[in-house]
Design a protein around this nucleic acid. Structure first.
Lengths: 112, 112
DNA sequence: ATAACACCTGAAGAGCTATTCATATATGCA
DNA sequence: TGCATATATGAATAGCTCTTCAGGTGTTAT
């Protein structure tokens, strides 16, 4: 196999996201790429802030499963939490995440 | 476990993305959530259009692996292709995908 | 035609992941 | 203090996914 335009390929490889950055980007997407976690995130997008038991109820998943899912999302900086008594409220971490979720929903709406 | 605000939970569950929509959204993210596929997509974001051999070279992966990856992305409508002689050129399917990739890169830049 | 090239496809195995079960921590209440 | 609630954690297994290998299709050139 030979490259039809070696110069362009070389330029692309240079300007490209580094393998490390790509890995981090993939990691971000991977975390959104699970039905349970996606539903949790869209629930938070709608509601603003929900505790674990709210989320488990909204998404209809075991609270243990929700807890596991949230830990991954929290560690990755996708959601943030605050404690209120014995409950812990979760919310989307920042505006970028919200835009990402919105934009993707748009994509599906138009792509069909 | 009881819900602190049953009405809000019910409302959230109703307005929420359906499990089916969530599954499709998760599927979209899941496809972006692999280092190889992510690198391919960002290569296309930079270069506009590249053939399989260009992509394999840019991302430094077997052409077979690239082919498998591209099939998933093509089937999902994330990339599109055109044939030119014996080469097949791939490009990002639409503006939403481009925005998604851009936005995510912004997120990483600011989140650190 | 026949060879070379670019790409695709199917099968198979190694590795990863999500859920579950059991248990632990932390807070509030009596 | 003792008990219930809300959430977190650890271990284990079933299921999935990515890569590789081997072979197949379509295209160009001689």
């Amino acid at each position: 196999m030979q490259e039809p335009d070696a110069a362009r390929v070389a330029a692309t490889r240079d300007r490209l996201v580094t393998p490390e950055e790509a890995t981090r980007l993939a990691e971000l997407f991977r975390l959104l790429g699970d039905p349970t976690r996606a539903r949790l995130l869209y629930a938070l997008l709608e509601a603003g802030e929900l505790c674990v038991c709210d989320l488990a109820d909204a998404v209809e998943v075991t609270d243990t499963a929700v807890s596991h899912a949230l830990r991954l999302l929290r560690t990755a900086g996708i959601v943030a939490s605050r404690r209120a008594g014995r409950m812990i409220y979760y919310r989307l971490a920042d505006a970028h995440v919200r835009m990402l979720l919105d934009l993707s929903r748009e994509h599906l709406k138009e792509t069909g």
